[in-house]
Design a protein around this nucleic acid. Structure first.
Lengths: 173, 173
DNA sequence: ACGATGTTTCAATAATTTTTGAACTTAGGC
DNA sequence: GCCTAAGTTCAAAAATTATTGAAACATCGT
């Protein structure tokens, strides 16, 4: 069941032709693709994650490209995204320049981090604007109902900003 | 500051030319557009919601189209989306066929409903597949680490499905 | 039943996002 | 210090998603 000649240590000349995803792997990939879609994460990124997730050991660049049948560029960008969001870790073997990847231990933590990275910047940059909008409305004597809505929005925004650092400490903490 | 002739009851012949969004309204719209973007909700939908949110009273179709400067089609589809997700309510005046819209009282509830509608179907339809993937992995004697990951995923999925109806009762309950 | 108003539908177009691939950079081994 | 393997970058192509607008539909007042 193994591809011929797997034992030859380290050396690999003509590329080994990788098997496409098997049905059970596809099923998992579909799930991740779907979920990722909700947050606007591209298909290829979700697929890469799924492959690492269902693989027994760390997976290298060429394996990812080969098994998923996507371009180098996509693999590189996908890994960058996952790295940036701390969703994967690299394991470097001593005698090789090649990096091998595996998912970080906690998918939950990864998801929270991902959400954070999308929502937080929006909240932060909105803060002053929202306050201005509220002040504006008060000044011009808007309907109490509108004032109330805008106040609530401001309160939420503030609370969310206070809560955020607790939900998961920022990368350098 | 009002457009000429506003008092003539009900009748409206030549369309009244609506003012584009004012700076403070734009600021709020930007905020909603940003947040909506995270969930993949189109700009026009977020803008419509923002307009209703910052307006003192219910707003009608033509006002939305006029003030946002978008097409009838977009207004119709946007309102449909917001209606479907129970984010807005219509107020019908007795003597008019025209519908006028306002946001539902709780933005929080609206957001939860929106999330639900995106996440739940994915979880539901994934359920059997995930179980199959796990069974598959066990049967073929996959690494314990992989089995562990897949089990956790299954547990999550189940728990999420159990929790979902509590988070907000489905539309007809 | 008719005409006019208000809204929806949907195929075509426009805008945006994702993927590709070839050229470029970087890091080791020798 | 070169040479090659490993990975990155980015402009162009492909794929996807949102918007438009004209035609169809529905409903109300008469």
């Amino acid at each position: 069941m193994k591809p011929p000649s797997e034992k030859s240590a380290g050396r690999r000349k003509s590329r080994p032709s990788y098997a496409p995803l098997q049905p059970h792997e596809l099923e998992l990939a579909d799930f991740f693709v779907r979920m990722a879609g909700i947050l606007g994460v591209p298909r290829s990124v979700a697929e890469i994650y799924a492959l690492l997730y269902i693989s027994s050991g760390p997976v290298d660049f060429d394996q990812i490209q080969g098994r998923l049948g996507i371009s180098k560029g996509s693999v590189s960008q996908g890994l960058k995204f996952l790295r940036d969001h701390e969703m994967i870790l690299s394991v470097k073997e001593p005698g090789s320049r090649r990096e091998r990847w595996q998912p970080t231990p906690s998918l939950a933590a990864s998801l929270v981090a991902l959400l954070r990275s999308q929502v937080l910047p929006a909240l932060e940059q909105a803060q002053p604007g929202l306050q201005r909008v509220l002040a504006d409305a008060e000044q011009r004597g808007a309907q109490p109902e509108v004032i109330e809505r805008l106040s609530r929005l401001n309160r939420w925004n503030s609370r969310a900003l206070e809560l955020a650092p607790l939900l998961l400490p920022p990368p350098g903490a």
